[in-house]
């Protein structure tokens, strides 16, 4: 699968990454190379093989319903780019 400029634009938007127009072609080529590597997978028939999402056959452990966390807003917001009145600020969200 070879990616073109439009593909890169689409996935860059999904991933919220700004890509300079001048870099589009180079990125498309790099990604296409990687996909070529990846597509070696197609050489093997995986019909009937179950997908494996986790290396171990473990199941989800359940936590007791207890409040264990205390308010650490000050510490967490000390590393935030912009806050006011305890809120994180972002450019206006239009709904």
């Amino acid at each position: 699968m070879s990616l073109d400029r439009a593909d890169v634009e689409k996935i860059a938007h999904l991933a919220r990454l700004e890509v300079e127009p001048d870099d589009m072609a180079a990125i498309a080529a790099e990604l296409s190379n990687i996909l070529e590597l990846v597509e070696q997978m197609n050489a093997v028939d995986t019909e009937g093989v179950a997908p494996m999402a986790h290396p171990l056959h473990m199941v989800q452990r359940l936590r007791a319903d207890e409040v264990t966390e205390t308010n650490r807003r000050e510490a967490f917001q000390a590393i935030a780019p912009q806050t006011e009145a305890g809120l994180y600020l972002v450019p206006k969200v239009i709904e």
């Binding site: 305890g86 994180y88 600020l89 206006k92």
Partner: peptide
């Protein structure tokens, strides 16, 4: 998202 005006920004709780 709290849309009341924070200098034209949105506050997130």
């Amino acid at each position: 998202s709290l849309h009341e005006d924070f200098h034209g920004m949105t506050g997130i709780d």
